[in-house]
Design a binder for these strands. Structure first.
Lengths: 166, 166
DNA sequence: AACGGTTATAACTATAATGGTTACAACGAA
DNA sequence: TTCGTTGTAACCATTATAGTTATAACCGTT
């Protein structure tokens, strides 16, 4: 920081004493990766745009680095949702937006591991009644909860989502 | 912090109180932490065991380090689900197992912060139709999906779970 | 055949959560 | 006082994310 010339920082002068109150609020969110929402954004753009849709163009709309976009597009390609013209550029859907659900996109970007939203601890002590039973019985309940979420995601298609844009 | 020489800190004066609010948002999650399933394990043990239930005993059943267990028990204490006798040791429930749902436990261990399972990217380009709309419209759908999952978790109580142990 | 815009990918970074671990102070009953 | 226990602090290795730079490959146009 350039001392000596600090007298006009923020247009203020050094006539007065300093009181700076710095409040730092750190909000830690442990969440499903934004890769998912970015992927929805990407597919929405491809669906609605009439022009060529390049990685750079999408990056401008998502407001991030083009490489981040291409990485996600690579996942969407592997899932068979879109394809990209190499060299010349431009992406297009491989399925109708009526046939692409949020669940399809969710799965495509591998936002969770092994299709298991909930991690369950392993290697419980089998000599204990709880230890013997907890993993499988709890896993069943958690699968049910995960299914409930995924079924809701499956109800919304890309075209339904876009229809609500204003 | 150098007291006494703070009069020229940043060239500001005591006439001005500067409040800087820094919000850091970190998005991480591959799977919901096993803290949740361990917490269910812990509460199941306390419910079913006739003897004293110490951190070391639980650690033996979960098959992990006692400190990991005590950390989770601390969270369950803060949530009002159990209490621990300091010194002498041993944990006991503060609510009946019929009144503790998986959702209560899920919330207690702060496995998701801010009550938002899905991260949604911010700062999309508002000059683009998709960019303007995607965040709010997608967030609504994701909230619905999250609710579906949580409602399912709320349907299972600790006593129901334990009743299925063999 | 060279050029320019594009895609694909490798490599690297900073950040931070997790689960495990050691260490130690505080607590309370025998 | 002693001993088993609780409650934390501190540290570690591992891992995923999002961003970044750099580079090779691709393909239509000139």
């Amino acid at each position: 920081m350039n001392e000596g010339t600090n007298s006009n920082l923020f247009g203020l002068t050094k006539l007065y004493k300093v009181t700076i109150l710095v409040i730092t609020v750190v909000v830690i969110l442990k969440q499903i990766s934004t890769r998912f929402s970015m992927a929805v954004h990407i597919l929405s753009l491809i669906t609605t745009s009439t022009n060529e849709v390049t990685g750079d163009f999408i990056a401008g709309s998502v407001n991030t680095n083009p490489v981040v976009i291409r990485r996600i597009m690579g996942m969407l390609k592997k899932a068979g949702l879109l394809d990209v013209r190499p060299g010349v550029g431009g992406a297009f859907l491989l399925k109708a937006p009526e046939d692409i659900t949020l669940l399809d996109i969710y799965h495509a970007v591998h936002v969770i591991e092994g299709n298991r939203l909930f991690g369950v601890h392993q290697d419980s002590n089998v000599r204990c009644q709880v230890g013997r039973n907890i993993e499988s019985i709890l896993q069943f309940e958690l699968n049910e909860a995960q299914s409930a979420m995924e079924q809701r995601l499956a109800q919304t298609t890309l075209s339904k989502l876009i229809a609500r844009f204003e």
